[in-house]
Amino acid sequence: MAMTEDMQVDTSQMKVSDEVAISIDNMNKWYGSFHVLRDIDLTVYRGERIVICGPSGSGKSTLIRCINALEEHQQGRIEVDGTVLSSDLKNIDKIRSEVGMCFQHFNLFPHLTILENCTLAPIWVRKTPKKEAEETAMHFLRKVKIPEQADKYPGQLSGGQQQRVAIARSLCMRPRIMLFDEPTSALDPEMIKEVLDTMIELAEEGMTMLCVTHEMGFARQVANRVIFMDDGQIVEQNEPEAFFSDPQNERTKLFLSQILGH
């Protein structure tokens, strides 16, 4: 592991602000006896867009799911937006309502309309009046360019539309941080762009984003840091330009050659 640390550049120079959004110190996680995440150290500054890539099974999903406590970590410290993640349920619910998350399979609520999907959490968690929640929801549905679908059910929408609704649903909680777990992996090729466009727009507005994705074009365009994970460890991280043109670690090189070169 000492080897990997040598290869990391000084990330503090990439930061876009001094305010820390997420700090992870020496975090470890096991599934039973399987050590999925090993000594993870990561600081995310407010407004940063971080892309996490790596081979399947390397622990990318597990890492970002630890950040909003969908998975428990066993060692180390995670601090999100000034709140330390502990087993206190109140803390966890608070962090979750500040951190938006988009999943590979959208996970919209099929029994609720698009509008209800978007207003549910603001109404019940934030106690926003229904009327106001609906206005906010329509605002964000317009932003992801599907206001006309508000009264349909998720099952009536295409994959790309569903993922954009999922993004709008998260945004309705006015999160300060957004997590994306392979948001375009389950989509047909012609729908990937519409989702990426939405995410790019979000990035341009200064949202703090952690994004697991293999869309390297997206990483080049919006990320200010790319993290490569393998075997539960952060193997390499760098600015996208340097990361793609001059990868240091052998495993990074191999991964990039597999994913970029054909």
């Binding site: 909003n68 969908l70 349920l89 619910d93 608070k94 979750r96 309502s97 500040e98 951190v99 938006g100 998350m101 999943f103 996970n107 919209l108 609520f109 549910l120 959490a121 019940w124 968690v125 649903r169 998260s170 909680m173």
Partner: peptide
């Protein structure tokens, strides 16, 4: 997970 991630108790 979606319900949890939105902060619902």
């Amino acid at each position: 997970e979606a319900a949890d991630s939105l902060g619902l108790d």
